[in-house]
């Protein structure tokens, strides 16, 4: 007979209940230290007067929020970001879908398709710094783009694509579209390849033409991917900083000022870390709307 006393059921029950928490503890600790603490600190900073530079900051309530929201440049930054993001996401989707359908075509041989797949995916392989340097050179007034346009008889070959306040926003949006469409293309191509062929065959038997098959088979089948990708791209593109900063620095004047460059300048040019935190909190709130939409969409799918 064993001399060990059996443990009470209550203690065993408590240990069992705590066990799952212990397993998630490392991840939870990482999330708390790397995400929750910084977010809480930034939110806290947004209610203080100039933190970091000021050794004894005081609570100023909503003053920072009023200052940022009433700054006309902040309004311009919101408008520019909206134009930049909406145009980028729409173009990423259209170009990505067109190229994905081309790569999914049976009209071309496997080698040709492999070659095109390699070429189409190239822009996605470059980091933002390379993309910025590349397009700064291409779009320079003495660059290749102006030379080609001039040689073909379009314009006088002296267009200032990035330096003209009227063209700069369009130019950086174009660069962002160029560098981002392959991600859509790859995801949509995977989606296209997963559509059962019998759906198309059934549609054909029912007398559907190519356009009807596209609208009634392809698009409904890709819809979950399209919505997820569009929401994610919306969030990512609204955070685009490096490309804008390295091509135009938010200029000329404020033509390409985005929420990201606006916040960066507050923090690292003006050293107004409290105002920068305020701007960051406002961006967080705007991003959260999109994040909530994304999560709800994912939940609905599940």
């Amino acid at each position: 007979m064993s001399a060990t006393l059996p443990r009470t059921p209550r203690r065993i029950g408590a240990a069992r209940r705590l066990e799952p928490y212990a397993y998630v503890a490392p991840t939870a600790a990482l999330m708390i230290v790397l995400m929750l603490v910084p977010i809480a600190m930034v939110i806290g900073y947004s209610f203080l007067d100039n933190v970091i530079l000021n050794k004894d900051p005081e609570v100023v309530g909503l003053d920072n929020y009023i200052e940022v929201i009433t700054d006309p440049v902040f309004g311009t930054a919101i408008a520019n970001t909206l134009v930049f993001v909406t145009a980028s996401v729409a173009a990423h989707l259209l170009i990505g879908l067109a190229f994905a359908m081309m790569l999914n075509s049976r009209l071309l041989g496997p080698r040709v398709l492999a070659a095109f797949r390699g070429i189409f995916i190239l822009p996605w392989l470059f980091t933002a710094a390379i993309v910025a340097v590349l397009w700064r050179m291409l779009l320079s007034p003495n660059g290749v783009v102006n030379y080609l346009l001039g040689a073909l008889g379009f314009g006088d070959g002296t267009t200032e694509w990035l330096s003209d306040p009227g063209l700069a926003l369009g130019s950086v949006t174009f660069i962002n579209i160029w560098s981002g469409y392959p991600f859509f293309m790859i995801s949509l191509l995977a989606g296209l390849q997963g559509i059962p062929a019998d759906l198309y065959e059934a549609a054909k038997v029912d007398g559907a033409g190519p356009i009807q098959r596209f609208w009634n088979v392809t698009i409904p089948q890709l819809k979950p991917i399209i919505i997820s990708m569009a929401l994610l791209d919306f969030i990512w593109t609204s955070q685009q900083f490096a490309l804008i900063w390295m091509t135009t620095g938010g200029g000329p004047i404020v033509a390409t000022e985005m929420l990201s460059t606006y916040t960066y300048k507050l923090a690292f040019a003006k050293y107004e870390f409290a105002l920068a935190s305020t701007s960051a909190v406002l961006i967080l709130l705007l991003s959260m709307v999109l994040a909530v939409l994304y999560v709800r969409h994912q939940r609905a799918r599940d």
């Binding site: 007034p141 003495n142 200032e160 330096s163 200029g251 000329p252």
Partner: peptide
């Protein structure tokens, strides 16, 4: 003045 002033940096100037 050379075109592209509004986004030109010091290294571009030296290159020109």
């Amino acid at each position: 003045i050379a075109a592209g002033s509004f986004t030109m940096k010091e290294q571009d100037k030296v290159e020109e």
